[in-house]
Simulated assay, not measured.
Amino acid sequence: MTDIRLRGIPAFDDNYIWLMSLGRQAVVVDPGDAAPVLAALEGGGLKLRAVLLTHHHADHVGGVAGLVADHPVPVYGPALEGISTVTRPLKDGDRLAPFDGHAGFEVLAVPGHTRGHIAYYDGARLFCGDTLFPCGCGRVFEGTLAQMHASLARLAALPPATQVYCAHEYSLANARFALAVEPDNRALQARQRWMAARREAGLPTVPSLLHDELDTNPFLRCGAASVRERVAARGGRMPADEAETFALLREWKNVF
């Protein structure tokens, strides 16, 4: 059977709802709005097999009830967040195989943005919700900065060729901050130019490749001397370790 095909469905101001298809089978990730997903399913002649949720925020789960009213399928989501529409609660290390002809996904616990945030990884693709973005990371709302740092370190350890499917188009704003941190990073400069050209043409900047994040995302580069020195210059002292570097970076980004 052919490989999974991916389509990013724009929603709201800057969300992406990811629609995966394998033959006529379809799985949707973080459907904050049902209407565009229903239109895509009908237009593509697809049969919904499952819904995957990464966390409880309304722009990620708001369309689930409307979807399952028309397509009664399993809804997978984090066990720790009590999402009312979830029928298959998941914890770290669980596996699910919503497609026939595909090995399925491993569940990775990545708390920080929310207390029970999870990601889905199939060995090639990572659906990470609001944890990791191009040149950035999610805000820490319910978890701790230490949790978010550990979650990002876990994702950074995946194979560099991993395709990263996040849930928002935040790339240009993130790149501006990343350049404030590492203005001399040539890979970042080139990536920012590529992002700007993509957005000018009305095209998405996602998915990204993990190896690009390792080269250009300051939140994954907390051990780099250039990042640590910039944080030290701003704060008046050298951070004690990578975790403190991350915490100071995230606090800086919050007010940037």
Results as ranks from 00 to 15, higher is better:
Asp3Gly: 10
Ile4Arg: 11
Leu6His: 12
Arg7Pro: 00
Pro10Val: 09
Asn15Tyr: 08
Asn15His: 10
Tyr16Glu: 10
Ile17Phe: 01
Trp18Glu: 08
Leu22Tyr: 02
Gly23His: 00
Gln25Ala: 04
Asp30Trp: 06
Pro36Ile: 04
Val37Glu: 03
Ala39Ser: 10
Leu41Asp: 06
Gly45Arg: 03
Leu46Cys: 10
Lys47Met: 04
Lys47Gly: 11
Leu48Phe: 05
Leu48Asp: 01
Val51His: 02
His56Cys: 08
Asp59Val: 06
Gly63Phe: 07
Ala65Val: 05
Gly66Ser: 10
Gly66Thr: 08
Asp70Cys: 06
Pro72Leu: 14
Gly77Tyr: 13
Gly77Leu: 04
Pro78Arg: 15
Ala79Tyr: 05
Ala79Pro: 03
Leu80His: 10
Gly82Gln: 12
Ile83Pro: 02
Thr85Tyr: 05
Thr87Arg: 11
Thr87Tyr: 11
Leu90His: 03
Asp92Thr: 04
Asp94Cys: 11
Asp94Lys: 04
Leu96Asp: 07
Pro98Ser: 07
Phe99Gln: 05
His102Val: 03
His102Ile: 04
Ala103Phe: 01
Ala103Asp: 14
Gly104Glu: 10
Phe105Trp: 11
Val107Asp: 03
Val107His: 01
Val107Trp: 00
Ala109Gln: 09
Pro111Lys: 07
His113Ala: 14
His113Val: 09
Tyr121Trp: 15
Cys128Ile: 14
Cys128Trp: 03
Asp130Lys: 01
Leu132Thr: 07
Leu132Met: 13
Phe133Arg: 09
Phe133Lys: 08
Pro134Met: 01
Pro134Arg: 09
Cys135Arg: 05
Cys137Lys: 00
Arg139Thr: 13
Val140Asp: 00
Phe141Asp: 09
Phe141Trp: 11
Gly143His: 06
Thr144Cys: 03
Leu145Tyr: 13
Ala146Tyr: 02
Gln147His: 08
Gln147Glu: 15
Met148Ala: 11
Pro159Lys: 08
Pro160Arg: 13
Pro160Met: 08
Pro160Phe: 01
Gln163Ala: 13
Val164Ile: 14
Val164Trp: 00
Ala167Asp: 09
Ser171Gln: 12
Ala173Thr: 13
Glu182Thr: 12
Asp184Thr: 12
Ala187Lys: 15
Ala187Val: 12
Leu188Ile: 13
Trp194Val: 10
Trp194Gly: 01
Ala201Met: 06
Pro204Arg: 09
Thr205Val: 09
Pro207Ala: 03
Pro207Phe: 05
Ser208Asp: 12
Thr216Gln: 02
Asn217Thr: 06
Pro218Ser: 01
Pro218Arg: 00
Phe219Tyr: 02
Leu220Val: 05
Cys222Tyr: 01
Gly223Asp: 15
Gly223Glu: 15
Ala224Ile: 01
Ala224Trp: 02
Ala225Lys: 14
Ser226Leu: 07
Arg228Ile: 09
Glu229Leu: 10
Arg230Ile: 01
Val231Ile: 15
Pro239Phe: 07
Asp241Pro: 08
Glu242Ser: 07
Thr245Pro: 03
Ala247Tyr: 01
Leu248Pro: 01
Leu248Thr: 00
Leu249Tyr: 05
Leu249Asp: 01
Arg250Phe: 03
Lys253Tyr: 12
